[in-house]
Design a protein around this nucleic acid. Structure first.
Length: 918
RNA sequence: GCCUUGGUGGUGGAAUUGGUAGACACGCGGGACUUAAAAUCCCGUGAGCAGUGAUGCUUGUGCGGGUUCAAGUCCCGCCCGAGGUACCA
């Protein structure tokens, strides 16, 4: 019988779906949760790169199930997103229609690959039943504050209570601005004033913040949605702007997000990326007295030891103190400078590293030396970090140095022997000089000494700063979750939880309203029953993806995000598979969101994803033809140097092994109908290059076509065979024949010459058993180490050996089908049923290997060595200690070397003695 | 600049973590079957040298040193690529 993959795959996919083979429920078995990052269903559909991670996680899921685990392996869609909305703006088609179409297409493509997803648990972020819980979590955050002492989120009602009794006394709270008031002051404030103050502490809060505004997209963006001053989606310029926006107080969790990384089984590089993003730095805050404010202003520094060398101070242009510190005489210059910086986008600022700045006219007093120092404004200081103001130590900071040189400000060296004539000395070592009581100390000693001094004299304190910013949470867009918020007297209030979900209203056009309000401004009756206006912004993309892993545990629960029972059983994700691009976005937000819910005891795990695997990107492999300029003649790669040519991308689907199918090429596009070719050896050889997989490069390979031509099992195994899962690599359809041939050979093992399923029940011999057990062991360790490419090789070796042994024994071939089933589930299922089993192969048990059949190579025996010695006589495959001794004694040089030595171990590799350890 | 990774045949990639470097596969070359092609099967394939030949020798994992009986693997110093981050005080 032929290996008819089309028939087999259709048959079993139907069987799996109809019998709900992959449906999971809570049971007595141990659980295992395998999750893929759910996709955004884009209009282009899947290409062969997308399923890579899904195949890996599918193999792992199936393997774990065979090992007796109750495996949760769900899938869903991150369905809110810009492309559907942009499409809606252009065509007027509602984004939900576009999204629905795309989801259908995704589902069809996914189904053909034979995944073991439990589709009964599917979630979609745009489904009201789902986003009800996104809104619910938002209300919880709105109704919470963060207590730094307890390192925990708590209900805001508690805080209101405390304020009315003790004001802010003895409180350490995460906040936007340090406020101080007494209980009396609090109690005297009216409702609106109190609400305004509470916003300063809420975990989901509304505040005037510096945001990344993208005029082209007409919306604000979070920090991780911007790279080098351009929006990640679309690549449009982004500018800084103060706007009143919703934010999530992620920064309150900075230390916990940092500390808990330790406990995670994630790649070092990804953890490092998160550490950098969180950006903890230890230092001190120092107060500088400012005369015309008659008050002190704090600055943050990691080099408190250099405070004697502060010769000026610099304020960020956006700092709130700019106005207060600018003196009359300087007003015009400062205004001019501010105007200039405002006009420049962040991108221009980054690109242009020239030194700019302006003097405010004010002076501060150095708290240790008593010197009067000028205060400047410059855009190299950021408003959002520290206090928005720095103490400049030109001798020991390169940026301050450049500034000092440019504006001719003094430079005082503070470290013995350092040369600051042409550049600053930034290293943190040496002996202090010119530093009063710090003189003679080393830098680390001085840092400690000055901190102590600052605290004792109440001019500063130790301080830890984080680079991590609060996440901007509003978008001026239509296609997103509406906020469950209404406004009364201009202050935000959460709507009643019982009224959730607050459904996205219909609007006539998907553009901003004429008033300049976000698209929701067009909605009719967008207000509460009492007539209060509802929030017009919507939530960002990461809102719906932050807690979806919890919803999969209990997706149809109307009463809670996840029931305590389901959460107690499924706990958190054991294995998460997805791309690195989410390192500073989704993977931070999810951890934050999870910790927040954890603080409330709503879930039992502190971290969402225990182990994380980042699958690499699959790049495209493009092919080129070379057209002789000004003609319709194409010259083959080897001869192109003789002509003046233009490179043209050729559709990779009409090229095989870099040889162009000329007839298909002629039909490909009308202008090539009468093309002529200059061949080499009768063939047209194309050039090639590795590029991003994209339509415009004609290198997109659709998995549907691969499944059509080779079958899903071949696709699955080939994607794994391509290389290590974490590595990026180009797709090259050429190699696929090798894997397909392997499956056909495997198939033929189970059938005789006449094509009948023919299995012998005779006992297997030593060699056959060894072959099987070797493979079981290899596959097991490979799967556990995510080394799927070598697993595929192991299968190939196994099948080749069994073929040469002409093995058709049930004892070997039946377990072989089981260990193959995670990789090639369709063919394995077919064989399994041919063996007479009535249930699916995924309910089989992964066979255990027996070391007994494997002993051979490494061998412990007391003897000698020599470096690269090759023994004339080799050992047989199975050997005894006596035979080893004979071989060694046969060699005179070895014997001599061995004199007076006590050998401990002989290492034998494939019959050759490689080493003798003494 | 800093952090994290990598660098092995014509190609994708193996190498039990210090033990035959190049498994497995693609490609290529040769052969069998066939009227022919496809499919299938068999043999060869890092480079160089010697030999009719089985085979033997030399060399070889980005570069330069070192440790070791033994280094792709460990240590020191460079070079190159990929990813992250960047006026973060």
């Amino acid at each position: 019988m032929e290996y008819n993959f089309r028939e087999i795959e259709q048959k079993w996919q139907k069987y799996w779906a109809e019998n709900k083979i992959y449906k999971v429920e809570i049971n007595d078995k141990p659980k295992f949760y395998v999750l893929d990052m759910f996709p955004y269903p884009s209009g282009a559909g899947l290409h062969v790169g997308h399923p890579l991670g899904y195949i890996a996680s599918d193999i792992f899921s199936r393997y774990k199930r065979l090992c007796g685990f109750n495996v949760l392996h769900p899938m869903g869609y991150d369905a809110y997103g810009l492309p559907a909305e942009q499409y809606a703006i252009q065509t007027g088609q509602h984004p939900s229609i576009t999204t629905e179409t795309n989801i259908k297409r995704y589902r069809r493509q996914l189904d053909r690959i034979g995944f073991c997803f439990d589709w009964d648990r599917e979630v979609r972020t745009c489904d009201p039943e789902y986003y009800k819980w996104t809104q619910w979590a938002f209300i919880k955050m709105f109704d919470s504050y963060y207590c730094n002492q307890a390192q925990q989120a708590r209900p805001i009602s508690e805080l209101i209570e405390v304020f009315s009794v003790q004001g802010t006394r003895n409180l350490d709270l995460a906040c936007s601005k340090q406020l101080q008031f007494t209980a009396e002051e609090w109690n005297l404030k009216n409702e609106k004033e109190q609400q305004e103050i509470l916003l300063n502490y809420r975990i989901a809060y509304l505040a005037d913040t510096m945001v990344n505004w993208c005029p082209k997209l007409g919306t604000v963006l979070a920090n991780d949605e911007v790279s080098e001053g351009l929006s990640i989606r679309g690549g449009y310029p982004v500018e800084q702007k103060v706007m009143r926006q919703w934010s999530l107080r992620v920064s309150a969790y900075a230390q916990r997000l940092l500390d808990d990384l330790e406990s995670l089984d994630w790649s070092e590089s990804l953890k490092e990326t998160q550490r950098n993003w969180i950006g903890r730095s230890e230092g001190a805050e120092i107060n500088f007295y400012i005369e015309n404010l008659n008050a002190g202003l704090a600055v943050f520094t990691t080099r408190a030891d250099t405070v004697f060398g502060v010769t000026f101070m610099v304020l960020a242009p956006e700092s709130e103190y700019v106005d207060k510190l600018t003196t009359g005489k300087q007003k015009q210059d400062v205004a001019k400078y501010l105007e200039r910086t405002k006009r420049r986008t962040e991108r221009e600022r980054i690109a242009d590293k020239s030194v700019t700045g302006v003097f405010t006219g004010s002076y501060a007093t150095n708290p240790v030396s008593g010197h009067k120092i000028p205060i400047w404004i410059s855009d190299y200081v950021l408003a959002g970090y520290g206090t928005g103001m720095i103490m400049a130590v030109p001798a020991h900071d390169s940026r301050d140095y450049a500034f000092a040189k440019h504006f001719n400000l003094p430079v005082i060296p503070l470290i013995e022997g350092c040369d600051v004539s042409s550049e600053s000395f930034d290293a943190k070592d040496g002996i202090m000089i010119n530093s009063g009581f710090l003189n003679g100390l080393t830098v680390p000693q001085a840092i400690e000494a000055i901190k102590k001094y600052l605290e004792e004299n109440r001019i500063g304190k130790r301080k830890v700063n984080y680079r991590l910013r609060d996440a901007i949470f509003s978008r001026q867009r239509y296609w997103g979750e509406p906020f469950p918020i209404y406004y009364k007297q201009g202050m935000p209030y959460a709507i009643d939880e019982k009224k959730l979900p607050l459904e996205l209203p219909e609007i006539d056009k998907f553009l901003p309203a004429e008033t300049g309000e976000p698209p929701l401004g067009r909605a009719k009756n967008w207000q509460t029953a009492e007539g209060y206006p509802l929030e017009l912004n919507t939530m960002p993309g990461f809102a719906g993806s932050s807690a979806y892993y919890l919803r999969y545990m209990d997706p149809h629960n109307d009463n809670s995000l996840v029931s305590a029972e389901a959460n107690k059983y499924w706990k958190n994700v054991d294995l998460y598979v997805g791309g690195t691009e989410h390192a500073t976005g989704h993977l931070i937000y999810s951890r934050f969101w999870n910790k927040f819910l954890f603080d409330y005891g709503l879930i039992i795990e502190n971290e969402p994803f225990k182990k994380l695997i980042n699958q690499g990107m699959i790049q495209g492999r493009s092919n080129f033809a070379y057209r002789v300029k000004g003609t319709n003649r194409f010259v083959s790669l080897g001869l192109k140097s003789e002509y003046d040519t233009t490179e043209i991308h050729v559709d990779v689907n009409i090229v095989k092994n870099d040889i162009l199918d000329i007839d298909k090429f002629k039909q490909w596009r009308p202008e090539f109908n009468d093309a002529e070719f200059i061949l080499e050896n009768g063939k047209y050889i194309c050039g090639h290059a590795v590029e991003k997989m994209s339509k415009s490069m004609y290198n997109v390979v659709n998995p549907d076509e691969i499944v059509e031509n080779y079958g899903a099992d071949t696709l699955r195994m080939y994607e794994m065979f391509l290389g290590p899962i974490e590595q990026s690599k180009p797709w090259d359809t050429n190699g696929i024949d090798g894997v397909h041939r392997f499956l056909r050979r495997l198939w033929s093992l189970y059938f005789d010459m006449d094509g009948n399923f023919n299995i012998s029940t005779k006992k297997a011999n030593q060699q056959e058993l060894k072959c099987l057990h070797k493979t079981i062991k290899k596959i097991q360790t490979d799967i556990e180490n995510f080394s799927f490419n070598t697993s595929v090789s192991a299968f190939m070796i196994c099948v080749n050996e069994l073929m040469s042994l002409k093995c058709n024994k049930c004892e070997i071939l039946e377990p072989l089908a089981v260990i193959l089933s995670p990789f090639a589930p369709h063919i394995a299922e077919e064989l399994w049923h041919l063996f007479g089993h009535a249930t699916s192969i995924c309910d089989a048990v992964f066979p255990e290997y027996n070391e007994e059949f494997l002993t051979e190579s490494a061998f412990e025996y007391p003897v000698s060595f020599n470096g690269k010695m090759r023994f004339k006589k080799e050992l047989p495959l199975a050997f005894s200690a006596k035979q080893v001794e004979e071989v060694i004694l046969a060699d005179a040089a070895t014997q001599k070397w061995l004199e007076n030595k006590t050998p401990k171990k002989v290492i034998v590799v494939v019959g050759k003695i490689v080493n003798i350890v003494v």
